[in-house]
Each structure stands twice: as structure tokens, then as C-alpha cells.
Design a protein around this nucleic acid. Structure first.
Length: 530
DNA sequence: GTACGTGCTTC
DNA sequence: CTCGGAA
DNA sequence: TTCCGAGGAAGCACGTAC
């Protein structure tokens, strides 16, 4: 535990990726494999279900530290991080521990979830008395599920690849899907030949970059395959070992939530892996994404819901056929194989993503303008010569989304951020006019530079009208252009609408609050959707 | 029993 | 999902 | 150029407060 806490501190201290990789590698090489396995598990962002709610942690830490809960909250706001606040407030430990990471996790952390409140509290008190400040910080992050370090999958993969003298893509693939940390699992991860079971294992998803500018700069139209960018859930169908596995981008097995897939996809031949999008599709229509959300994370799937929101898997790539990994083959070769594999199965459940046939970039651009009416987000451009790479490879896959919708809105509330932004008001609520009053319709902060953020922060401090806990109402003076992808009815905001992916496009210093848009402008956009 | 907040997933 | 910042 | 961390909206499950 001490070594892992030291690693965490080291990773937190530097932003240099080279140093991070070296630190991870040194740690993994030095500790027993069962510790290394858990470290990898946590470092790539996996976590067991949260064992203790933040509420309880806050209450018990306050009690143990002898501070009131409001003081804890004040400290939390200043520090910006709950786990760190708790670690700092607690009285120093009277003992030390040399228990290794895997035992802390398996014997002290995981069992917490199954215990009653009194036992949890007793366990935490015992732990606090054995852990120093750094160890507590890590421990708190693990139990609250907030463990995130300035290191992600890629650096861990780089460290593991160096350690095992493997290609990073091999390691990335081995880390996919469901696995339990153990000594054997870690050895399999870095071994030349892995003997870990691979039946259900998906491939790393290839992701696209946003296209800015003119697609004509990509070269001849004929070098590129265009498809619609559908608005659903990215998924991989894995047909192996006589079974069907459906993986989400977050590497969750989601097959049970989409029972309609198995009867059809189960007829794919053994050793097939398809990449595609799960879509709510009824009759001839693609339904809005909101409909699909009703099918996610639900325990009981009623007959009614299955009939209301039928789901289809729209395949756009084949990664494995007849047990052979096809990822190195160019898209131009994979596409006909995909068409061939799917031909006998295509229907309501399994579909093929159509290739958009517009012979020139100009004609393609015209088709793209009709995206909203089709319930798609725009176009995907895929280089026909490209292999199916690992991760976000630049230059091979581009998403060419529709231009965002936009309105001018007034800043009405501000709230301080968290983490590095804890000391600044960086969290903004925006409003538009309705009957002479400003009604909030979204929150956003992204889109402003640090300098602008600092300027707005100063404005907030000088123009606070009222305080509601951490939230400040400010004089409605500043106008911003807010961009968003879509708009829908909502009960969350007073305006009755909510926008998707809101962000600040620019600060309209040239505008007065009175020049900001009215709710009618938003309503009009709402109506404009097909 | 209902209402609300927190956690966790998707985008 | 979006965006700006940093390496 | 590539990653990372900050952040948004939505729906469902689950636990707590009344």
C-alpha cells in the first residue's frame, strides 16, 4: 500500500509522460504480481462498486477529526477534492502498516461493501489509524470510486509494453473486456504468449477525430468511404465459443439489455467480431437517442418497452471473420467481407451501415445538410486504405458533424469548480429571455480560455447579487454565444428545454444583455427538428 | 409510500 | 459527448 | 499531434428523508 501511495504521489507530481511511464514501470517491476495486477486495474480506471457513500465518509471523517460537517464542507470547497480533504483533516495515525496493496484491496476494501454501517465505520477507523496521509488519500479514492490519476490507459499500456517487450497494441488488446486482477492474470498480461482466456474479449475500439475545415483537403473523394454518423451506442458483437457477447465502448457486457440481438446475431458464424452502433429503430424510423436511453441500465425490460423501443445493431466494420483477425486489412477489403457475412442475416435486428454514395465532396456536403431530418449527427469519413487501428488514430477516421446550433445567452449563476479549478468560479448557468425575465436553460464552462475564465471569475466576485450555498447569482451583464448539438423538452431547467453538449462558442463583449436571445429562438429550434 | 439526491452509464 | 492546455 | 482533465444532459437504480 505504501509503494502504491508513493506511485500515486509521484504520478500526481509530474505532468511529464516519460516520467510517468518510468514510474509505473518501476513500480510494476518491483512489487509482487498480485499487487501489480490491482495497480494496473486501478490505473486504467477500473474500479469496484463504490463501497461507502461520500455522505457517510464525510460524516465519519468529521466525527473522527472533531470538526463539524459545515467546516468539513468549507475545507472540501477550498481543497476541491473529497478524498484529500478527508485525508488531511483526520488525526495522525498511531501505527503503520506494511500490508501489500492486494491484501488491502481484497481483505479490507472489497469486504466493506457487504457490511452494515457500524462495521464499515469501525473498519474505516481502524484503517485511518494505520495509514499515513498519502495512503489515506489513495484509500479514500478507492472506496469512494473517485480514483483517477493524471495517467490513463495509454501510459499504463506503454509501461506494460516496455516491461513485457511487447507491442502496445498487444497489451491494449489484452486489457480489453472482463478480467479479475490476480498474479496469474498479471503474468499473462506481460508474457510473450498469453494463456489467459480470450473467448469473450473484444478489440480496442477505433475512434474518430472531428473534421475541421474542408473535406476536399483529405484528397480524392474516391479514397474515402462515407457513412452516416448515427446517434446510438457504439458496440462490438463478439461471436465465439458458441456464444454471443455484446460489448459497449466502456467495456461493459450489455447483451442482456438487448435480448433481441441474440436470436439473429447468434447465427453469425463462429469467430466473428463486428463493430457497429446500437440504434433505437422502429419501422422505417430511427428514434431519438433519448428513447434508447430508456433501454440502458434498466433491470426489468418490459414487453411494452421492447415493443416501443426496438433496437437494431447497425454493423459498419468486421474485425474478425472465421476466427481470423482482419484488423490489418484495409477497409476496402473488410467492407466486402462484412457485406458478405451479413447478407443472409440482414433484417430488423441486424443491418448494414449504408455507404453514402455521393460522387463528389460537394454533393456529399449537400447530403450532410439533411442530417438532422434523418436523425443522424452528420457523416463519417473513413479512408479506404486504412487498417482498423488501435485507439484514436489521426487521419483515418473523421467525424464530420453538422454545425452546432447556437443562441446568445446571459450569464446568471456561477459556482466554483473542483480539483484544479476549486478556487475559481468556473461553472456557469446561462439564461435567455422570456416575458421580460431571464430563464436558465443550460450550464457550460468549456470553450473559454484560462484568461477569460479568470476574467469572468473576477466579474462574479464583484457582481454577486445573492448566495445560495456555493452558488452565486450575478448581475445579468455578460453575454455569451452558446453552441449545442440538439435540443429537447426538459424539466431540469426553468426554460423547459435542455440542450445537448452545450459549450461556450465565444464571449459576445459586443452585446448587451438586452440583445440576448429569447426563449422563442430555442422553441423555434425545437420545432425545426424533424 | 413518495420525493429527492447520489452513483453510474451512455453520448 | 466538448473544449483548452500541456507535453 | 496526442492526451488529459475539466465539464454538460439524460435515464435508471438505490438509498435516505419525510
Amino acid at each position: 500500500m505504501r509503494a502504491f501511495a508513493a506511485l500515486y504521489a509521484a504520478l500526481d507530481e509530474t505532468t511529464r509522460t516519460g516520467e510517468k511511464v518510468a514510474a509505473i514501470r518501476a513500480y510494476l517491476a518491483a512489487v509482487p504480481p498480485e499487487d501489480a495486477a490491482w495497480a494496473v486495474y486501478f490505473l486504467i480506471g477500473r474500479k469496484p462498486r463504490q463501497a461507502v457513500s461520500t455522505r457517510k465518509l464525510r460524516a465519519w471523517v468529521s466525527e473522527a477529526a472533531g470538526v463539524s460537517e459545515w467546516l468539513f464542507d468549507e475545507c472540501h470547497e477550498a481543497v476541491g477534492d473529497l478524498a484529500e480533504t478527508a485525508a488531511l483533516l483526520l488525526p495522525p495515525p498511531t501505527r503503520t502498516t506494511s500490508m501489500p496493496l492486494h491484501r488491502w484491496v481484497e481483505e479490507r476494501l472489497l469486504p466493506l461493501a457487504g457490511k452494515d454501517e457500524a462495521a464499515q465505520k469501525a473498519d474505516l477507523r481502524a484503517a485511518w489509524d494505520e495509514l499515513d496521509r498519502n495512503e489515506r488519500l489513495v484509500f479514500h479514492k478507492l472506496i469512494t470510486g473517485a480514483f483517477r490519476v493524471g495517467v490513463s490507459q495509454r501510459l499504463v499500456i506503454a509501461a506494460l509494453a516496455e516491461l513485457g517487450e511487447l507491442a502496445p497494441a498487444t497489451v491494449a488488446h489484452r486489457l480489453m473486456g472482463a478480467w479479475q486482477p490476480s498474479a496469474a492474470q498479471f503474468r499473462g498480461l506481460v508474457a510473450a504468449e498469453s494463456d489467459q482466456p480470450t473467448t469473450s474479449r473484444p478489440y480496442p475500439f477505433l475512434l474518430a477525430h472531428p473534421l475541421e475545415g474542408d473535406p476536399a483537403e483529405l484528397g480524392p473523394r474516391d479514397d474515402w468511404q462515407a457513412e452516416w454518423k448515427f446517434d446510438g451506442i457504439r458496440a462490438q458483437l463478439v461471436r465465439r465459443g458458441g456464444q454471443l457477447f455484446v460489448w459497449s465502448r466502456g467495456e461493459e457486457l450489455i447483451g442482456e439489455r438487448f435480448p433481441e440481438l441474440a436470436p439473429v446475431a447468434g447465427r453469425l458464424s463462429e469467430g466473428t467480431v463486428l463493430d457497429g452502433e446500437l440504434l433505437p429503430w422502429r419501422g422505417a424510423d430511427i428514434l431519438p437517442f433519448a428513447e434508447l436511453q430508456r433501454r440502458i441500465g434498466r433491470k426489468n425490460l418490459s414487453r411494452t418497452l421492447l415493443a416501443e423501443v426496438p433496437v437494431t445493431f447497425l454493423a459498419f466494420d468486421v474485425l474478425e471473420a472465421f476466427g481470423r483477425d482482419l484488423r490489418e486489412r484495409p477497409l476496402g477489403e473488410r467492407r466486402p467481407i462484412l457485406e458478405q457475412l451479413l447478407a443472409p442475416l440482414v433484417g430488423d435486428v441486424l443491418r448494414l451501415s449504408p455507404v453514402v454514395a455521393a460522387p463528389t465532396w460537394r454533393e456529399l456536403a449537400e447530403l450532410r445538410q439533411g442530417s438532422r431530418a434523418r436523425n443522424v449527427e452528420g457523416l463519417m469519413l473513413k479512408r479506404k486504405a486504412a487498417p482498423y487501428g488501435v485507439g484514436r488514430v489521426r487521419g483515418d477516421w473523421w467525424k464530420w458533424k453538422l454545425d452546432p446550433l447556437a443562441v446568445d445567452a446571459v450569464l446568471v449563476y456561477a459556482q466554483s469548480g473542483s480539483g484544479r479549478r476549486a478556487s475559481l468560479f468556473t461553472d456557469y448557468t446561462f439564461a435567455v429571455w422570456q416575458d421580460g425575465a431571464l430563464v436558465p436553460f443550460c450550464k457550460a464552462y468549456s470553450g473559454l480560455t484560462d484568461a477569460e475564465l479568470a476574467e469572468v471569475d473576477r466579474f462574479v466576485r464583484g457582481h454577486t447579487l445573492e448566495r445560495f450555498g456555493p452558488v452565486r447569482a450575478v448581475t445579468p451583464e455578460l453575454v455569451f454565444e452558446i453552441g449545442f448539438e440538439g435540443i429537447a423538452r426538459s424539466r431540469r431547467h426553468k426554460s423547459g428545454v435542455a440542450v445537448r453538449f452545450p459549450r461556450i462558442l465565444r464571449w459576445r463583449r459586443d452585446k448587451q444583455p438586452a440583445d440576448a436571445d429569447h426563449l422563442e429562438a430555442l422553441e423555434a429550434l425545437l420545432g425545426a427538428r424533424s
